[in-house]
Nucleic acid binder design. Structure first.
Lengths: 178, 178
DNA sequence: GTCTATAATTTGATAGAC
DNA sequence: GTCTATCAAATTATAGAC
């Protein structure tokens, strides 16, 4: 079982990073929202880089786990790509921000090394998942390319939908995959 | 004719925002690179928001002007979509950053209103351009959707290529449009 | 684990000399 | 137009009490 306070810090930091980016969130803002002081946040996560790294790893695990295994989805009659698209779309509507991977990917030029590494892992895991999904669907063609296209399209669509405050950028883009 | 010093400030700020984001660049860093003091940057652009707004407007004009009119490209035997893709690709390779629109789009949660407005204009102009391009190509189907798909795909591909330091994300993604 | 207090640095921005 | 000087605020991070 996970430590509840640390998890609250991670969730709060995740929301802030996804809304405004790594360079915009701070220990004080996270602490204020959690209801403790910034020094207490440092107790759990000594540096900003370590906090963001933990956020990214947690986000990756949660995301991959939330969508489930492509094989299982396919076996139960669902199209795994539709599930993947729905997971992205839900994040736009529910939260007020973009995908953590997309945000950190854009900001890579000002990120600590360990956060960059964790961000790359997020995308590698996503491409892996999508490759399995397209394999399930018996996709004819370059599966690796198709996986990269899928994640690229949805990340871009999410970011533009977010700034335009117009979900049709996402929905119109997602149509390309069906 | 444009003021050379102001243009140098704008270009420097653009490079920094595209590499690390709005929240990571500062008057002092821009000034240092230009070879003046931060107070002198404030003389040209009183606030950070005004500077970023000017950067975004300049970037938009430069980008649209650089790729040319879709009709002209088509008339001279070029596929305007290929030109558009090449313009994006060139920016990844030449500069060490992503598209300004994609960066600011991700960071929208921490941007001054005027910068958000300028960023939206960038995307509207891009979609407009792409709609004209697909019209030239006699594209059958929803032209607005196709334009949104195109810009979403390339923005996402650019951001992921940048963080993965792997241009194949961009090239594989661009294949989807041909 | 959380707090107060504080250090060291950076930030956006302004006043006023030249 | 550019400079020096400065300010008020925010930042990451640490020391030490409780």
């Amino acid at each position: 079982m996970t430590n509840s306070k640390e998890d609250l810090i991670l969730q709060t930091a995740e929301n802030m990073i996804r809304e405004s980016g790594y360079n915009s969130f701070s220990f004080r803002k996270v602490a204020e929202k959690v209801g403790i002081k910034s020094a207490s946040v440092h107790y759990h996560f000594p540096t900003k880089g370590e906090l963001a790294e933990a956020v990214t790893k947690r986000y990756t695990e949660n995301f991959i786990q939330a969508i489930g295994q492509p094989q299982d989805l396919h076996a139960s009659g669902k199209n795994p790509i539709d599930v993947y698209i729905a997971a992205f779309r839900g994040a736009i509507v529910a939260d007020n921000g973009v995908c953590l991977g997309g945000m950190l990917g854009a900001e890579v030029g000002s990120l600590p090394d360990d956060v960059i590494k964790a961000t790359r892992t997020f995308f590698l895991r996503n491409v892996e998942w999508l490759e399995e999904a397209y394999q399930c669907l018996n996709y004819k063609g370059d599966i690796n390319a198709k996986a990269k296209q899928t994640v690229s399209l949805l990340e871009g669509a999410m970011i533009i939908s977010n700034v335009m405050k117009d979900i049709s950028y996402f929905d119109s883009s997602a149509e390309l995959l069906t």
